[in-house]
């Protein structure tokens, strides 16, 4: 997943998700993936008709529809306001739990670390600290 979504502007939400199902074996149903991120009501909208948060949730659906073993999220909330960011993080959390894919969120926003199982701190390309969260927060509980 990318910071700026990278959806194809002239394909609908449904088609953007379908696009990646054409290159993998045994994908999830596209409607199922979109339901996981709470976008069942926006299937036939084009990206320009969606908010930034909705577009990022389409990107989450696009990532999980392949039933991946791992999801790498690069600053998924970097372009979003707090409330929208929380919605996206909730979608990522749900996808992580439902698909059971190892999910790595790269971020400069340390508050997001509160929802992780494990936090790796990086400095100048090296891991400088590893923490395990004994009490994970839900995305709704995060503040920044």
């Amino acid at each position: 997943m990318f910071q700026f979504y990278n959806l194809i502007p002239n394909l609908t939400v449904r088609e953007n998700v379908q696009l990646v199902t054409e290159i993998v074996n045994n994908p999830m149903r596209r409607e199922e993936a979109l339901a996981l991120v709470g976008l069942s009501h926006r299937l036939d909208h084009f990206p320009c008709q969606l908010s930034g948060g909705e577009q990022q949730r389409v990107a989450v659906a696009r990532a999980i529809v392949k039933r991946p073993d791992a999801i790498l999220c690069d600053e998924p909330t970097g372009a979003l306001d707090v409330e929208t960011g929380k919605l996206v993080l909730a979608a990522i959390t749900r996808a992580n739990e439902e698909v059971c894919a190892t999910t790595i969120v790269i971020t400069h926003n340390t508050a997001i670390a509160g929802m992780a199982h494990r936090v790796l701190r990086l400095s100048e390309g090296r891991i400088v600290g590893v923490e395990v969260n004994p009490h994970r927060l839900s995305p709704e509980e995060l503040t920044w």
Binding site: L11, N16, L19, E22
Partner: peptide, 10 residues
Amino acid sequence: SMLDRKVLRD
């Protein structure tokens, strides 16, 4: 395919 559809719409 979705890519064909994208090309047609382009």
